[in-house]
Amino acid sequence: MADLITFLRNNTLALAGAIILGLLILVITIGPMISPYSPTKLDILHKLAAPSLEHWLGTDAFGRDVFTRIMYGGRATLAIGVGVVVIAFLVGVTVGMLAGFAGGWLDTILMRIVDAMLAFPALVLAIALAAAFGPSLENAMLAVSITLAPQFARVARSQALSISVKPYVEAAVSLGLSTPRILFRYVFVNGLGPLLVQSTLALGSAILQTASLGFLGLGAQPPMAEWGADVSANLQYVRSAAWVALAPGTAILLAVLSFNLIGDSLADWFNPRRRSALE
C-alpha cells in the first residue's frame, strides 16, 4: 500500500486521472440526490437560458437543466461503460485464454474469427451492429461489447501463450489438474496485470463508442439523459447557446481522459522497471 501511495505521488498523470474520475463519480452519485430539477420535465418558458446561479450550466431547448441532465446522464453513461467492459472481458478473456492454452486447430479457428473482427474499425463495426440490432440502449451495449471482446481475446491469448510454458503450469498439468482450474488459478491469475490495463483503456473506448451511438440515434432514446444523445440533440443550438452541447461533450472528454490516464499509469505500475523509476 505504501508503494502504491508513493507511486501515485510521483506519477502526476495517475493522480490527475484519479482526481478527475473521483470528481465525476462524486457528482453523478450525489448530485441527483440534491438537485431540485428533473432531467426530463419540460419548462419551455425558460428554454436556452444562459448559465446562472439558478442553472449552473443553463438550460436546453426544452428548458431542462443541463447540469442535472449531465448528472443523470453520467450515471447511464458510466454504468453502460462498465457493463460493456465486463461483458467484453468475460467473453474475450475466455476465448483468448482457451485458444492460447489449447493451441492447435482450436487456436487457429478462434483467432481467425478474432482477426476478421479486428479488421473492421471498432466504431464502424459498432455502428453496423447497432443499426442491425435496432436503436436501443441495450442493443448499443451489445454492439460495443462485441467490438471490444476481440481486443481482450488478443491480450489474453498472448498471456496464455507465455504463461502456459512456465514450470508451474507444466507441473499442474503433470499432476492431472483440470483445464478450467489451470486456466483460472495459474494462467488467468498470473496474466491479470495486462488485462486490467486493457480493461481500463477499454472503459474509455466503451464510453466514447456508446456516446457516439447515442449521438447517431442508435443508443439511448429520448427523453433519457445520456451524454452522447444530449450532444446530438443540442448540436443545432451550438452557435446561439453553446453550453447545451459543450457541457455533455466536455463530460465525455473528461471521462475518457481520466480512464486513459489511469490505464497508462497501470501499465507503468505493472512494469517493474518503470515502477521502480517512479517510486
Rank of each mutant, 00 (worst) to 15 (best):
A229M: 14
L266N: 02
Y72K: 06
V86S: 01
L235H: 02
S38R: 07
Q236L: 14
V66T: 13
A156K: 08
L13P: 00
V238F: 14
V231A: 11
A116I: 15
L4H: 02
L161A: 01
N271W: 09
L123N: 06
W227T: 03
P32T: 06
L4I: 14
V95L: 15
I5D: 06
V66P: 04
M71Y: 09
E54Q: 14
P223G: 08
P39I: 10
H46F: 06
V91M: 11
L26K: 00
I5P: 00
E138N: 09
V84S: 06
A242N: 02
D60V: 07
V144L: 10
A233M: 13
V93H: 04
A241S: 15
L196G: 05
L183I: 14
A2S: 14
G134E: 10
L266K: 02
L266S: 04
A76G: 00
G104K: 10
L137P: 01
V238A: 13
V187T: 06
S136Q: 12
T12I: 12
K166R: 15
A50C: 00
S38W: 13
F270I: 14
S212K: 03
P39V: 08
V82R: 02
L8K: 06
L78V: 15
V256D: 03
G228R: 09
S35Q: 10
L208I: 02
S258H: 09
L195H: 05
A202V: 00
G176F: 13
R64P: 05
S174H: 05
V173H: 12
R154G: 03
A251M: 13
I25G: 00
V144N: 06
A50W: 12
E138S: 12
G104L: 11
T68P: 08
L125H: 07
A131I: 04
S158M: 13
L216M: 14
M33I: 10
L90S: 08
T147W: 03
H55C: 09
N234P: 04
I19S: 05
L266T: 00
L53I: 12
M111P: 02
Y168C: 06
S199A: 15
G217L: 08
G81D: 09
A153F: 09
L48W: 11
T77S: 15
M1Y: 12
Y237I: 00
A277W: 09
V114G: 03
F270Y: 14
E279D: 01
I34T: 14
G134Q: 10
T94G: 14
E54G: 14
A119Y: 11
V155P: 01
G92K: 02
V244Q: 10
N139H: 15
V91Q: 07
E54V: 10
E226I: 03
E54T: 13
A126L: 08
A79E: 11
S52A: 09
G191W: 06
L257H: 03
L203Q: 05
V187G: 03
A247K: 07
A255P: 01
E279V: 13
V231F: 11
L45F: 13
Q198W: 03
E226G: 02
L213I: 08
A131D: 10
T200K: 01
L254W: 08
